[in-house]
């Protein structure tokens, strides 16, 4: 799984996009039992992440995923896509496994989360996705240095099969490609016609990302920018 590695967009847009992940190596008994029960440590990870204004945060609990996503309210639920509140995620008592995620738009929040994780030494493998310089600076200020880095060398092959750049920027925020290009186009179209707000359109896209690593704040900005650009082009052509 490399699902946060190939997010597309300008450096400026990507600068407002960080994902923090916790995970353990399932075969490592030492990591499973390091400094107490795993579930308590993942719960603490979620509490720390939840305290710094995440756009999204996810816990695996009771055989399901508890998903808080900024802007997602219960009226927007559909099928298995059910919203949780931030309090429900960080207060969950039935944590399973070592995986948790949180998404941020702000480097300062990432610095604070990393600083706290370093101090508390939870023994969880922590991965931060984001623009290199931004993450390196966050590391430096938190007193950390990366252990391993995964660099994206981009996409190769039949590039003509890819959608336009704004659609790609939206769709690649779900690394498992659960967001269809048709849906992304439709959301832009509906925002353009005034039928939806950019924020509501971003939530509809984000719901499809079952890992809950979609950044609705960044997506709303991309949608707004694209609607404005298309209106501008339409005006030029008429």
């Amino acid at each position: 799984m490399t699902h946060t590695n190939h997010r597309r967009g300008s450096r400026e847009s990507l600068t407002k996009d960080f994902v923090i992940l916790s995970m353990i190596e399932p075969t490592s008994e030492a990591q499973r039992t390091y400094r107490g029960p795993l579930e308590g440590r993942v719960k603490r990870f979620l509490e720390i992440c939840g305290g710094h204004g995440p756009v999204a945060i996810t816990a695996r609990a009771g055989g399901r995923r508890l998903r808080y996503l900024k802007g997602w309210t219960r009226e927007m639920d559909s099928g298995i896509h059910q919203a949780s509140t931030l309090e429900e995620v960080i207060g969950c008592e039935e944590i399973e496994g070592g995986v948790g995620h949180a998404v941020y738009t702000d480097r300062e929040a990432v610095v604070e989360v990393l600083r706290k994780l370093r101090e508390e030494d939870l023994g969880l493998s922590i991965v931060v996705s984001g623009v290199f310089e931004e993450v390196f600076e966050a590391c430096r200020r938190a007193g950390l240095k990366p252990h391993t880095v995964n660099m994206s060398l981009g996409t190769w092959g039949r590039m003509e099969l890819l959608p336009d750049e704004p659609i790609l920027e939206l769709c690649t925020m779900c690394g498992h490609a659960m967001i269809s290009r048709r849906l992304a186009e439709k959301m832009i179209e509906r925002v353009g016609s005034g039928a939806l707000t950019p924020e509501a359109a971003a939530v509809e896209l984000g719901k499809q990302c079952t890992c809950n690593i979609f950044n609705t704040v960044r997506a709303a900005e991309i949608i707004k920018r694209t609607v404005a650009e298309r209106k501008r082009l339409k005006m030029i052509n008429t």
């Binding site: 490399t2 946060t4 922590i126 931060v128 995964n150 994206s152």
Partner: peptide, 9 residues
């Protein structure tokens, strides 16, 4: 952009 393992495991 990319992914960074923080070495906290």
């Amino acid at each position: 952009n990319g992914k960074h393992n923080m070495g906290l495991g």
